[in-house]
């Protein structure tokens, strides 16, 4: 097993990602397809919520991916800030839009699930929904700040700082929102889940989550490859103006 820094070399990364990325997409398609097929056609309706519990198979993986992408972004930012490996910043930049999309999807499917379950699109009492909303704004701030910087280097530094500050704050935000929501304890959508979830639900849910994880990895690799190719093209153009 080579050290992670082995792949910090863009050439090695390009070779490695070129070989791996198609398999990631294929694995993601199989696993996500399987979980959605199970969710829509196979699993039996939930005892209390009926068919609406089928929304869980997209909502819960989206929530996990939203958090995983932010964690990945924060770790990449830290690695970039300490060791200045260009690829780490490329990874952070690539993870942000995908993470934001999954966060938005989590919020939207949560609202759609909440309507038949609670009779309301939005429930402030549910700490998870509120935390994910704050996470969405952390993503927006990260992307807006990067976009406002006029050079790549500045965008990388500013992005790394705000991603690390945000990551340090996430546990505290989560803690405060949990306490606040517990004041007016309301129903929780995912109560049907928990350790008592039957294997009929658990297996497609977990495999689907793995599939979405593979998709996130594949999308990040593609976005990182795009970034590296754009830089090479810019370097070629710069060379021409010098010559």
């Amino acid at each position: 097993m080579p050290r992670l820094s082995y792949f910090a070399n863009p050439h090695r990364f390009m070779a490695f990602s070129k070989a791996v990325t198609p398999w990631l997409y294929a694995g993601a398609a199989v696993l996500v397809g399987y979980s959605i097929w199970q969710a829509l056609f196979i699993v039996s309706p939930e005892r209390y919520q009926g068919d609406s519990a089928r929304i869980m198979f997209i909502h819960v993986p989206a929530a996990w991916l939203a958090m995983a992408a932010y964690a990945g972004m924060a770790v990449s930012s830290f690695v970039w800030f300490i060791w200045r490996h260009e690829l780490a910043d490329t990874a952070a930049k690539a993870l942000a839009p995908a993470g934001a999309a999954y966060t938005a999807l989590c919020l939207a499917t949560g609202a759609i699930w909440g309507k038949p379950t609670w009779g309301t699109w939005w429930q402030w009492d549910d700490a998870r929904m509120v935390s994910v909303l704050v996470l969405f704004f952390l993503y927006l701030g990260y992307m807006a700040l990067r976009a406002a910087m006029d050079t790549r280097q500045k965008a990388a530094r500013a992005g790394a700082i705000i991603a690390m500050v945000g990551a340090l704050n996430v546990p505290i935000i989560k803690f405060s929102v949990d306490i606040w929501a517990s004041l007016h304890q309301g129903p929780s959508v995912i109560r049907a889940g928990g350790p008592a979830m039957p294997a009929e639900y658990l297996v497609p849910l977990l495999l689907g989550a793995v599939g979405h994880g593979l998709l996130l990895a594949a999308l990040s690799f593609t976005a990182m490859r795009t970034d590296i190719m754009a830089r090479r093209a810019n370097a070629l153009l710069l060379k021409r103006t010098v010559e």
Binding site: I36, L40, P45, G50, S52, H59, W113, P116
Partner: peptide, 12 residues
């Protein structure tokens, strides 16, 4: 699906 069908299709 039961009466929640439109919500399920909307989510997916």
């Amino acid at each position: 699906f039961d009466h929640t069908g439109p919500y399920i299709w909307a989510a997916y």
